[in-house]
């Protein structure tokens, strides 16, 4: 698994490092720490040293014998293209620090696509909805446009429940495992909520998906509850759930009911009302 973590110099970024470390420990993932700066000529030294510090913080969470990443030297940063700097180390797993010039949301989505990442993680400020460096729509754009799953950590706090909302779409194995890890990290219970469309007879398909999920999580001794709701109640249900729990939305392909129901404004609202984290699964 490859995880891209979008980071900047703000407090909300530093606060997600612990969660990233625990996720990396549990999944033994390749990690990419990505920062985005304005100018293309000079490397932003403040951003560089911040990323190096985060990388050291991650390493410190691992025991001496269990660190899967090799050391990174700050002198080995190299320019690999216009407005593109990076440094990597290859141990048992790869750790990459990368700084790109440009717009944060575009560069994160582009990097996640180019580097074939399975998950993007980013933090956001909790004071005014969910903002990134004073901009309100950065987490929304990344959540909307990323080719892979996205975890927006609004406030790194323990939630005792993960509410996983799914429709009839086929469930991806990596996404299943990611939810499992989020449940483990938070020591939480998992509520699997199936959404059925009133106008379509998809009940059995949804139930089939729910059986698959229940079996998967039961085998891993994850405590899961199931619930079935109608599509007309989903927005209200998700908004209420997000006040206490971490919400995981499975956004499938073109046929995805949830994708149709959740317009951009709904995801925006979800990011705004959520008190902990929002997980968009693909």
């Amino acid at each position: 698994m490859k995880i891209l973590v979008a980071l900047d110099v703000n407090t909300y970024s530093s606060k997600i490092v612990k969660d990233v470390a625990r996720l990396a420990q549990n999944t033994l993932a390749d990690l990419v720490f990505l920062g985005v700066q304005n100018g293309t000529d000079e490397l932003d030294q403040t951003l560089l040293s911040t990323l190096m510090r985060y990388q050291q913080d991650i390493y410190s969470y691992f025991g001496r014998d269990e660190l899967p990443y090799a050391e990174i030297s700050s002198e080995k940063w190299s320019k690999t293209g216009k407005g593109d700097w990076s440094v990597s180390s290859k141990g048992m797993k790869e750790f990459t620090l990368r700084i790109l010039a440009g717009t944060i949301s575009k560069q994160v989505v582009q990097a996640a696509t180019d580097m074939e990442c399975d998950l993007v993680i980013l933090g956001c400020s909790k004071e005014f909805g969910c903002e990134w460096d004073g901009e309100m729509n950065v987490p929304l754009r990344i959540a909307e446009d990323s080719p892979c799953s996205v975890l927006v950590i609004k406030q790194s706090r323990k939630s005792d429940q993960i509410v996983s909302i799914l429709d009839q779409s086929v469930v991806n194995q990596d996404a299943l495992e990611m939810v499992n890890q989020i449940v483990t990290i938070n020591d939480a219970g998992l509520k699997i909520v199936g959404v059925k469309d009133k106008n379509e007879d998809k009940e059995s398909e949804i139930e089939k998906r729910m059986v698959e999920l229940l079996t998967y999580y039961n085998e891993r001794e994850v405590h899961a509850w199931v619930k079935l709701i109608n599509s007309e109640n989903v927005k209200e249900y998700v908004t209420n759930a997000s006040r206490e729990a971490i919400v995981a939305l499975w956004m499938g392909g073109k046929q995805s009911l949830i994708k149709r129901l959740f317009s951009k404004s709904m995801i925006d609202q979800l990011l705004e009302t959520s008190k902990s984290s929002v997980f968009i699964l693909r």
Binding site: E207, W225, V226, K227, L228, I229, N230, N233
Partner: peptide, 11 residues
């Protein structure tokens, strides 16, 4: 005892 399953619904 009689046992039956019921899929928990929001309604």
């Amino acid at each position: 005892l009689f046992v039956t399953g019921y899929l928990d619904a929001a309604d």
